[in-house]
Computed example of a mutant assay.
Amino acid sequence: MNIAFFLIPKRDVAFVKYESTMRQALEKMEYHRYSSVPLINGDGQYVGTLTEGDLLWKIKNTHHLTFENTNKVWIKDVPLHIQNDPIHIDAEMEHIISKSMEQNFVPVVDDQNIFIGIIRRREIIEYCSTKLLTL
């Protein structure tokens, strides 16, 4: 099975630009009700996954940081506490299954590390469930 079958393309994915502010990230995550989103740099490359926890730790550990002034803090200055490595579009199905056990979504990149979309855990579970039912 080609993993491109499971791919949600970049145009349909809520992501945050690495050059954004905390406020922009918080508002995007709230709007979409996501607890984590891919981070993409100005060249379109995947640079990491931003989580609610990353944002909360930044607020907690930054003296005098409030929601009102999060528009002055850049995402690039927010430490990421979890490293979600992407997979390449030509990865084997076994690789994506093991990755999906560790994270809600798996970022997918091309040969130049350009972010092309995600594969959600939900689709992988549905695929595995279907395979089990056909045994």
Rank of each mutant, 00 (worst) to 15 (best):
D12Q: 13
A14M: 10
I8D: 13
I124G: 00
F15M: 03
N61E: 14
Y46T: 04
V106L: 03
A4V: 15
D43K: 15
G42M: 11
V73P: 00
K58P: 07
I89L: 10
V109G: 00
E126N: 14
I114Q: 10
T66H: 11
W74M: 12
R122L: 11
L135D: 15
A25Y: 00
G48V: 08
R120N: 07
M1C: 13
S129V: 14
A91C: 08
L135E: 15
P79Y: 10
W74P: 02
M22E: 05
I125Q: 10
V73K: 03
G44H: 08
D90P: 10
D90T: 12
I96Y: 00
A25G: 05
L65Q: 08
K99E: 10
G44P: 10
V16P: 02
S100F: 00
K28W: 03
I75G: 00
H64W: 12
T66L: 06
F105L: 00
S100A: 05
N69V: 09
Q24K: 08
S129H: 14
D12Y: 07
R11N: 15
D77E: 10
I116Q: 01
M1G: 15
R121I: 03
L7R: 11
S20W: 05
E30V: 13
K60G: 04
I119S: 03
L135G: 15
F6E: 08
D111K: 06
M29N: 07
D85E: 13
K99Q: 11
P107F: 01
C128A: 13
E27V: 09
A91I: 03
P38D: 10
V106R: 01
N84W: 07
R33S: 03
Q103S: 07
M1L: 14
Q24G: 06
L65R: 07
N2P: 14
M101S: 04
T62Q: 07
L80Q: 12
P86Y: 02
A25D: 02
V109R: 01
V16G: 00
E19I: 11
K28P: 11
V78C: 02
I75A: 00
K10E: 13
H32S: 13
I96H: 04
S36C: 09
V109Y: 00
R23A: 06
N84L: 08
L55G: 04
G53K: 14
L56A: 08
Y46R: 06
E123H: 12
Q103P: 06
H81M: 12
D111W: 09
F115L: 02
Q45A: 12
A25S: 04
K99C: 08
S20C: 07
Q24F: 03
A25E: 04
L133F: 13
V47T: 11
S35N: 13
G44S: 09
K10S: 06
Q103M: 05
D54P: 10
Y34A: 04
V13N: 01
I40Y: 03
E123R: 12
Y127I: 09
D12C: 07
K10Q: 12
E94I: 08
E92F: 12
S20Q: 06
E30R: 15
L39V: 05
L39F: 02
R121L: 06
